[in-house]
Computed example of a mutant assay.
Amino acid sequence: MTIKPQTILYARVSTTEQTIEHQRTQAETAGFVIDKVVADVGVSGIKTRLADRQEGRRLFDLLRAGDTLVVRWVDRLGRNYADVTDCIRELMKRGVVIRTVINGMTFDGSTTDPMQQAVRDSLIAFMAATAQAQAEASKEAQRAGIEHAKAKPGAYRGRRPSFTREQFEQVQAMLAQGVGASEIASEAGVSRQTVYRIRDDAAAAAAMLERWGRMS
């Protein structure tokens, strides 16, 4: 019996503010027909390799040659350069096609043309490096924001932030990818002014979240 190829969405959220359903909706809005969703909840993409996550291990067991793996962006696989590049290469060796919702990238291991392979591998390396660099920049902004907030423990908190930690991180990630403010605002569900605020002073935005207890 011939087994029909599957399109599997892998989603990962690291905080309770984030939702798996949002990532599925994004994928379906982009035109993907999802057969199955595999998701890790409350798992860091920096500290935990994909193969060490409970559902990440299941993902490797499920995927077969001819299947398509969909992720919002490569940072859902992880935010560690070596882990992300190793995972994508391993999946391509198995005959799995990896596609991203953001930027609409496709990574296919079937090509034998050396120039196409070089371009593909360079893109994988660049995107994985960007994911790690963005994670490090986000953590640094958060640390600066927390220190700023702690320095004035009795300070007036100001207006409640109009964005969550998830949106803060998503905006930073998309800015790192060179996405325009209007597209980021639409994708993240925030105003363009919020995008500009995070872009121009990420530490201040992180401090605002910390003062309202929304950065943990």
Rank of each mutant, 00 (worst) to 15 (best):
A131G: 06
R72K: 11
G95F: 07
K150Y: 07
M208Y: 06
A135Y: 03
I184V: 09
A125S: 11
G95Y: 09
D67N: 13
V171S: 01
G158N: 04
A203H: 00
M215W: 04
E183C: 04
L123A: 07
G213T: 14
K93S: 12
E28G: 02
A135G: 13
R160M: 10
A30L: 07
I124K: 06
K4S: 12
V179I: 15
D75P: 02
K93H: 07
L63I: 03
A30E: 06
M127I: 02
E169G: 12
A11K: 03
T15I: 01
L62W: 03
A82G: 09
R120M: 15
R99H: 04
V190W: 00
G189I: 09
E28Y: 02
Y156I: 08
L63V: 10
A131Q: 08
R165V: 15
R157K: 15
Q6D: 05
V13D: 01
D86N: 10
G42L: 07
D201Y: 02
V43Q: 04
T19N: 06
V171Y: 05
F168Q: 01
D40Y: 01
E55I: 00
F107W: 15
L123D: 05
Q26G: 01
G178M: 08
I146T: 14
E17P: 04
A205W: 00
E28S: 04
R214Q: 15
M1L: 11
R64M: 06
R12M: 03
A204M: 11
R120C: 05
A176G: 09
I46N: 00
A206Y: 03
V74F: 07
T7Y: 01
V101I: 07
G95P: 12
G154K: 14
R211W: 12
T194G: 00
Q193C: 04
R89P: 00
S138M: 14
E55K: 12
P114W: 09
T112F: 10
T164N: 09
M208Q: 15
A128R: 06
D52E: 10
A181T: 05
S216C: 01
M127N: 14
Q26W: 13
I146A: 15
M1H: 12
Q116E: 15
L69V: 05
S162K: 11
Q18H: 06
M1Q: 13
